[in-house]
Simulated assay, not measured.
Amino acid sequence: MPDSTLWVACLTAGTAITASWVTSQGSLRAAREQASAAATAQRANALAQSRRDSYIEVVDQAHHMGALYRELPIVLSMPAGSHKEAAVQEHAKGLREAYGPFTRACDVMIVDGGNSVAEAVKAVFRDSRAIYMCLLSASDDEDTSNVYGTAIRSYWDSVNAMVWEMHREANRYRV
């Protein structure tokens, strides 16, 4: 009988070791999958936060440019003369200074945003540039309210469309 007892003891020990190894492999695989899922969720949250920050920046810059554009008719309706020329040049300088951060925010959003957001940002940028080009080509005999009214409305329409696209894109995957 001593031989069979030793054999049973060895078989039991082998079974216990094998069961332990199988359990540890399962636990290891589960831990790896859990870590991978956590890393994926963390990357998705970081991307969503980065995109949200880009949205906020481009909307902020678009509103800043819009505030400057709203002042254009006032500046251009001044009586002709050196004061008007100085005011136009000063306003153009302010627009150029604001244009750098606006351009950078648009470029970042074109890279960070989805296709529909990128197209909407491009439209805002295009309408913004159109207003500035109108300023550079304006003459004293033009009716400023007609020249800029249409351009400024188009700009704000494109800003509103951009914000809508950002909203739609940001909420696409929410449950």
Rank of each mutant, 00 (worst) to 15 (best):
D3Q: 08
D3M: 06
T5D: 08
L6V: 15
V8W: 09
L11Y: 02
L11I: 08
T12N: 04
T15V: 14
I17W: 13
T18A: 14
W21I: 14
S24D: 04
S24G: 00
Q25L: 15
Q25R: 15
G26K: 15
S27E: 13
L28F: 15
L28G: 04
R29M: 07
A31F: 12
R32H: 11
E33V: 07
S36K: 14
A37W: 03
A37G: 03
A39S: 09
A39H: 07
T40C: 05
A41Q: 11
A41N: 05
R43V: 10
A46Y: 02
Q49F: 03
S50H: 08
R52T: 08
D53V: 08
S54K: 01
Y55R: 02
E57Q: 09
V58D: 00
V58K: 00
V58Y: 00
D60H: 12
A62I: 09
A62Q: 04
H63F: 11
H63W: 06
H64I: 04
H64P: 00
M65H: 02
A67S: 09
Y69P: 00
E71M: 12
E71T: 05
L72Q: 01
L72Y: 01
P73Q: 02
I74K: 04
M78S: 06
P79Y: 02
P79Q: 06
A80E: 09
H83M: 10
K84T: 03
E85M: 06
E85Q: 08
A87N: 03
E90L: 13
H91I: 03
K93A: 13
L95Y: 01
E97N: 08
E97V: 14
E97G: 02
E97C: 02
G100W: 05
P101E: 08
F102I: 07
T103E: 11
T103Y: 09
R104C: 02
A105P: 01
D107P: 00
D107G: 04
D107M: 12
V108G: 00
V108A: 11
I110F: 01
V111R: 08
V111N: 02
D112G: 01
E119G: 05
E119P: 00
A120R: 03
A120W: 00
K122F: 05
K122G: 10
R126L: 01
D127S: 14
S128E: 06
S128M: 12
R129F: 08
A130S: 12
A130R: 09
I131Y: 10
C134Y: 07
D140T: 15
D140V: 15
T144N: 07
S145R: 12
V147A: 13
T150A: 11
S154N: 14
W156G: 01
D157S: 15
V159E: 04
V159H: 07
V159S: 07
N160K: 14
A161N: 13
M162F: 04
M162Q: 06
M166C: 13
R174C: 05
R174G: 07
